[in-house]
């Protein structure tokens, strides 16, 4: 039963993976809204800046981005530990994809809702925050759920910039023991379980948003 002896180390790695994933999802989420709203409502210059940001981070590989940040940040005088670099890379990447989710959902709000808001003489800001965002938030949630899972999976790449996450631990153990089957099977199961938990959390948030926005599913009374 030597597989039990791998568990403590793998569990430590899983904790690092969970932490990095969580922080990146939160920061990435904030970036998503900032860039997504800027693209739809920001005026010409903010919209262009947001467009460049999303295209660059969606158009290149996360792994290339991570290596690039790893080598580039010190050159401009920003020396971070690998964990911070990993979180910056993952957050920027998630934010780029999330911005497209936010943009799509904002644009999907029916035109009639905007007309009604205009007929009631709401300001643009009021329309955005009280009419458009509450309705589109519900639409965004399933896509954000997928983005969260993607972020968890992609977090494995930070092992390649020497962060001791779950994948990194697995590599270390396998190099010591050469017991590939056991180590990688456990690792895959570990990620799968974390993904299930993450999906459940995202569904819970979706339900809270749905209740917050108070969309009764009931048909016509």
């Amino acid at each position: 039963m030597n597989w039990l002896s791998y568990l403590p180390s793998l569990a430590q790695g899983a904790l690092v993976t969970a932490e990095i994933t969580f922080v990146s999802i939160v920061i990435g989420g904030l970036l998503s809204f900032a860039a997504g709203i800027a693209r739809v409502e920001g005026g010409r210059i903010p919209a262009f800046v947001a467009l460049c940001y999303t295209e660059i981070f969606r158009g290149t590989s996360l792994l290339v981005q991570l290596f690039w940040l790893y080598y580039a940040l010190p050159l401009i005088g920003l020396s971070f530990d690998p964990v911070t670099t990993g979180i910056i890379g993952l957050s920027l990447h998630a934010g780029g994809y999330g911005a497209e989710i936010v943009r799509g959902a904002l644009l999907a709000v029916p035109q009639q809702q905007l007309e009604a808001a205009r007929a009631l003489n709401f300001s643009r800001r009021h329309t955005l925050f009280h009419i458009v965002l509450p309705q589109s938030l519900v639409e965004m949630m399933p896509a954000f759920g997928n983005l969260a899972i993607d972020t968890l999976k992609l977090s494995s790449l930070v092992s390649l910039i020497s962060i001791a996450d779950l994948t990194f631990r697995a590599q270390s153990i396998r190099n010591l023991t050469l017991d590939s089957t056991t180590v990688y099977t456990l690792t895959l199961i570990g990620y799968f379980l974390m993904a299930l938990v993450l999906a459940a959390i995202m569904r819970l948030i979706e339900r809270l948003v749905r209740r917050g926005a108070a969309f009764p599913k009931a048909a016509h009374a």
Binding site: E115, R118, A119, L120, N121, I131, Q135, F215
Partner: peptide, 19 residues
């Protein structure tokens, strides 16, 4: 917005805010 202060509108498809 100054103009709109004087006017209200009822739409064919109601356009109530569903949330």
């Amino acid at each position: 917005r100054a103009i709109r202060c004087n006017v209200g509108m009822v739409f064919q498809s109601f356009n109530l805010f569903p949330h």
